[in-house]
Design a protein around this nucleic acid. Structure first.
Length: 508
RNA sequence: GGGCGCGUAGCUCAGUGGUAGAGCAUCUCCCUUUUAAGGAGAGGGUCCCUGGUUCGAGACCAGGCGCGCUCACCA
């Protein structure tokens, strides 16, 4: 069995590299070096090239292509900033050093010391004086080759495209697919800019528990874990909302957390079991203020990270420039369907749904039915950034009743391209109302809605009883925001290591 | 969970019932400004798994596993 395994092609390739490793050691070459004094970046060398200057540089990177021509060779290395070619000649570095070079492969990480020149075909390159092996690569990387066809278009051959392998072995994906790396650089910059924006406003970044004995702040099924010493069940948070508002009770004027949340639900293009949520709470503000806050913050991110507010998303021109559209949820539904949902109870809405052949299972409450009608008739039409405002109270157990419209709460969600990108409200700070709503939810849980919380968070009620100032709160899904701004089709394309079923075992 | 699709060399893929293929990668030789370098040669396969049909299965059938897309669920 073991022999069969060792006959595979991959194993032979690895075996070959192990032999090279041995030969290198016999030549007293350390194949896994300790450090290298890099003084240049590939991109800077190319951008700052001056003819005949012969500037000395030291760069390091992974060998991505080798073209050997007997006693001289060209190769490309790739560093964090791009690729650069180096030229290496036996006459320059000597027989022994050239024989070391011959033992190198695509994938090896090397340091190149030499001077910058331009080849006769015009490529800025490094004329190698000294080559240092920094890390021998034992496993062949999937090589993509690029050529430029007659029309000047870039054609990529043998690109590493298997999505499963790309997600499972993201390190390989990042090496060979540069545009993937760019998405994650953008993601990082988006988060950095969100932080800067809030920090500048004096909003304090905090950390709250991931392991919670009660879960709340959203409706979702939680992951359950166990604490051995306390011998009790703990939940991985589905939201950090209730903790952040406790901090507003405690006297902070503004807090935010960029939190990993966990929801034990289906996985698809827009759902990963763990995902990143920004939640912000600001005292003495309401949802009107928060809408302007979102406009300003997203504008700031667009300008700082992308240098623009107009985006081409799947062929549609989207403008994030403030102000965004604002439309009322129930008014829009009425506009599209002719139904004033506030005039009907749950039974009446069910009848309307059935009449219109909308698929329902009959257990929906009024809020869920309104939401259904919204999704069917309105949601897809919200293309340009739009705040959908004033939700039915049944859908929003943590939002404050609308100051003028009965049955509604002061809540908004931001939609772009028919997709939700944020959720916010004037926070409910009446402890008596809040307790009643929690109890209604717990009842829903008992009646079989396993996404409703299973018990009332009495401590949160106690906190409200001490007094929560008027507060505006906001949640933004960082993954989905990144998807939108970088035009990526799947949440897995903006999460470095998306959740996958476990591999049976790592091959070989 | 439903539907559709995919699974063949390290990578990208051909192969519609009759000897498992191509390009790149790998190995040997030649080649001191190449860039999908080039020339000559060589090696490399559990065709996802299990059963079935057949004289004969990579291909056809059934079941399974894995993955992708999509619908539903998930505010």
């Amino acid at each position: 069995m073991e022999n069969q395994e060792s006959k595979t092609e991959l194993n032979i390739l690895i075996q070959r590299r192990l032999e090279e490793l041995k030969e290198l050691k016999e030549k007293n070459i350390e194949p896994f070096a300790y450090s290298y004094d890099v003084d240049s970046k590939s991109s800077e060398i190319k951008n700052s090239f001056v003819e005949d200057e012969k500037k000395d540089v030291k760069v390091a990177g992974r060998i991505m292509a080798i073209r050997r021509m007997g006693k001289a060779s060209f190769a490309h290395i790739q560093d964090n900033y791009g690729r650069i070619q180096f030229y290496i000649k036996k006459d320059d570095i000597g027989e022994e050093a050239y024989s070391v070079f011959k033992l190198l492969d695509i994938g090896d990480i090397v340091g190149i010391s030499g001077y910058v020149f331009k080849t006769k075909t015009g490529e800025v390159s490094i004329h190698t004086k000294e080559l240092t092996l920094l890390s021998k690569s034992l496993r062949p990387i999937p090589i993509a080759k690029e050529e430029t066809d007659e029309d000047g278009n870039k054609v990529v051959h043998d690109q590493f495209t298997d999505k499963e392998l790309r997600y499972r072995q993201r390190y390989v994906d990042l090496i060979v697919n540069p545009e993937v790396k760019d998405v994650f650089v953008k993601r990082s910059k988006i988060i950095t800019q969100l932080r800067k924006f809030m920090d500048n406003l004096g909003i304090l970044e905090v950390e709250t528990p991931i392991l919670q004995s009660l879960y709340g702040g959203a409706s979702a099924r939680p992951f359950i874990t166990h604490h051995n010493t306390l011998d009790m069940e703990l939940y991985l948070r589905i939201a950090d909302e209730l903790y952040l508002k406790r901090l507003i009770v405690g006297g902070f004027d503004g807090v935010y957390e960029i939190s990993k949340d966990f929801r034990n639900e289906g996985m698809d293009r827009t759902h990963n079991p763990e995902f990143t949520m920004l939640e912000v709470y600001v005292a003495y503000k309401d949802y009107e203020w928060m809408m302007e806050f979102v406009e300003r913050m997203i504008n700031d991110v667009c300008i700082s990270v992308f240098g623009k507010t107009e985006f081409d998303i799947d062929g549609t021109e989207i403008s994030f420039k403030a102000p965004w559209n604002r439309v009322s949820m129930v008014d829009e539904i009425e506009k599209e369907t002719g139904v004033n949902v506030l005039e009907h109870d749950a039974e009446g809405l069910k009848a309307i749904c059935k009449q219109r052949k909308i698929d329902i299972d009959g257990n929906e409450n009024k809020g869920q039915l309104i939401d259904l009608l919204f999704e069917i008739s309105v949601q897809d039409k919200l293309i340009q950034p739009t705040f959908l405002i004033d939700y039915p109270v049944e859908l929003s157990p943590l939002a404050k009743p609308h100051r003028t419209r009965a049955g509604l709460v002061e809540r908004f969600e931001g939609f772009v391209m028919g997709k939700e990108i944020c959720n916010a409200f004037s926070e409910l700070n009446d402890p008596i109302d809040q307790k009643q709503r929690f109890e209604d939810q717990t009842k829903m849980h008992e009646e079989g809605d396993d996404e409703a919380p299973n018990q009332v968070d009495e401590d949160y009620i106690r906190a409200l009883e001490f007094g929560l100032p008027p507060t505006a709160g906001l949640g933004i899904g960082i993954d989905r925001l990144t998807m939108l701004l970088t035009n990526q089709p799947s949440i897995r394309d903006v999460i470095l290591f998306p959740h996958m079923r476990p591999e049976k075992q790592v091959k070989e």
